[in-house]
Computed example of a mutant assay.
Amino acid sequence: MATLPSRLIGAVHQIARAESRRPALWTTRVERDGVPHVGLTLRNVSPSGFMGMASAQIPAGSRITLRLPFGGSVQANVRWSFNGRIGCRLCGRFSRGQLAFLMLCGGLNSLLSAAALRIAFLLGCLSLIILA
């Protein structure tokens, strides 16, 4: 049987995840291999990992410590890094409370963004009617 090249194996792994990811939006700080705080915005989460946007380059293979507002710190290994985005696998798992908090932040961001666009549209329409 033929084997896939390593770059395709990584792509297939990303497609066939064991756990589904949920949107999240939380900005926090991480410590990387003893390097002081790097800004990180979590974009999606699963019970065992996350994807985020880092303010500084974090190379694949690094071990980071993620600070959350409650439930303490979570350690993770950076599996991939590309253009400021990183994919991490947790050394453990998010607790139910941590996961619910992060998913709630993502859901609220989606609602608020859509509502803000609707309000801006309505205000624009009203200003056109008033000025006409």
Rank of each mutant, 00 (worst) to 15 (best):
A2Y: 14
T3F: 04
T3A: 12
L8E: 08
I9K: 08
V12T: 06
H13Q: 10
A16S: 11
R17F: 11
E19L: 02
E19N: 04
E19W: 00
S20M: 13
R21C: 01
R21G: 01
R22I: 09
A24W: 06
A24V: 00
W26R: 05
T27L: 12
T28Y: 00
V30G: 10
R32L: 04
V35G: 04
P36R: 12
H37L: 14
H37V: 05
L40F: 06
S46F: 02
P47V: 03
S48H: 11
S48N: 09
G49I: 00
F50M: 10
M51D: 10
G52Y: 07
G52L: 03
A56H: 15
P59K: 15
P59F: 07
A60Y: 03
R63C: 07
T65H: 07
T65D: 13
P69Y: 12
G71I: 12
A76R: 06
V78Q: 01
V78K: 01
S81D: 04
I86C: 01
G87D: 01
L90N: 05
G92N: 05
F94L: 03
A100K: 15
A100R: 15
F101D: 09
L102H: 03
M103F: 05
C105Q: 15
L108T: 11
N109T: 04
S110C: 13
L112P: 04
S113H: 10
A115G: 05
I119R: 15
I119Q: 14
G124A: 14
C125Q: 10
L126R: 15
L128S: 07
L131D: 09
L131F: 14
A132Q: 10
